[in-house]
C-alpha cells in the first residue's frame, strides 16, 4: 500500500504528502512469562480421518467404529507441522480443479440473502494518481460528524518538505478554527470515495485539524458506515 496521497486544498492546489496509520497502543498478548512460544499449524487427521471420509466408510453414526478400531488415528501423519502450502480449489464433488475457477462477486442483502451475482470488477487505488483527492468544501461540525458516522480508520497526514508543511498547516489551522471536519472526495467532482489499495475497501474521508504554535495535526478519518440501527435481523447474528 502506498504511503503517499495527493491532496488538493480549497484553492485547488495539490501536493503529494505522506500519511501513516493511527493505532491504539499494542494490546497485551497471551503467553507464558519468560518463554518464547512458537505458533504452529499442524495436522490432526489424514484424509482417511476426516468427517466426510469416515461417514463414507462407516455411515452417519461412526462413533462405534472409532471406539473399536481407531480408524481416524494415523500415527505417521498426525502432529506433522504444516508450513508452506499452495492453495487449490476443489469442485462441488471434492476433486481438485486443474484449471482456474471462475470468480464471481456475490452481493448479499443486510439479512444475508443473495441479491446479485456478477462478474467482479477490479478497482484501482485512487488516492495518489493524476487527479488529487479534493477538498470538497463541505464542512461538517465535529459535534455532528461524530454522532453521524462511524470512523473505522484514521491516518495522519504529514508534510514531506517545507512547502507541504505550509500547505498542511494552513488546512489544519482553518479546520481547527471552524471546529469542523472537511469531506474529501475523489474524481473530477471530488464526490467519489477514497480507495487506498487496489480492490480495497472504499471510504468516505473526513479531514480534521489542530494547531499548537508552529505544530499541527491533520487527521483523515475514514468511514464506511453511518450510525444507524440495523432494521433486519442478519442470518448470522
Amino acid at each position: 500500500m502506498t504511503n503517499y496521497i495527493r491532496v488538493a486544498n480549497a484553492k485547488g492546489r495539490d501536493a503529494v504528502i505522506g500519511f501513516k496509520s493511527i493505532k491504539g497502543a499494542e494490546a497485551p498478548k497471551m503467553g507464558l512469562p519468560g518463554v518464547a512460544l512458537e505458533f504452529r499449524r499442524y495436522l490432526i487427521a489424514s484424509d482417511q480421518g476426516t468427517d466426510v471420509t469416515l461417514k463414507k466408510r462407516f455411515g452417519e453414526d461412526y462413533s462405534k467404529a472409532l471406539i473399536e478400531a481407531d480408524p481416524e488415528i494415523d500415527l505417521e501423519t498426525i502432529g506433522q507441522t504444516v508450513e508452506q502450502t499452495m492453495t487449490v480449489y476443489l469442485d462441488a464433488g471434492g476433486a481438485v480443479l486443474n484449471s482456474e475457477p471462475q470468480v464471481l462477486e456475490l452481493v448479499l442483502n443486510p439479512d444475508g440473502s443473495e441479491k446479485e451475482r456478477r462478474a467482479p470488477m477490479d478497482v484501482a487505488s485512487n488516492i495518489n494518481g493524476e487527479v488529487p483527492v479534493r477538498w470538497s468544501g463541505r464542512k461538517i461540525p465535529i459535534k455532528d460528524a461524530v454522532r453521524r458516522f462511524s470512523f473505522r480508520r484514521s491516518v495522519q497526514l504529514q508534510h514531506v518538505d517545507g512547502l507541504t508543511y505550509d500547505f498542511l498547516y494552513a488546512m489544519a489551522s482553518e479546520l481547527e478554527k471552524d471546529k469542523a471536519v472537511m469531506l474529501l472526495g475523489t474524481g473530477e467532482k471530488g464526490a467519489g470515495p477514497l480507495i487506498f489499495q487496489a480492490n480495497g475497501r472504499a471510504y468516505r474521508g473526513f479531514l480534521s485539524g489542530q494547531v499548537q504554535g508552529e505544530k499541527y495535526r491533520l487527521l483523515l478519518h475514514l468511514s464506511d458506515m453511518e450510525l444507524k440501527k440495523p432494521t433486519i435481523p442478519h442470518k448470522n447474528s
Binding site: Q102, V103, L108, P120, D224, K228
Partner: peptide, 14 residues
Amino acid sequence: RAKLYGVRKRIAVD
C-alpha cells in the same frame, strides 16, 4: 456494515 448495507464477497465456482 454488513447489517446495514449488506456485503460483497468473491467466490470461486466450478
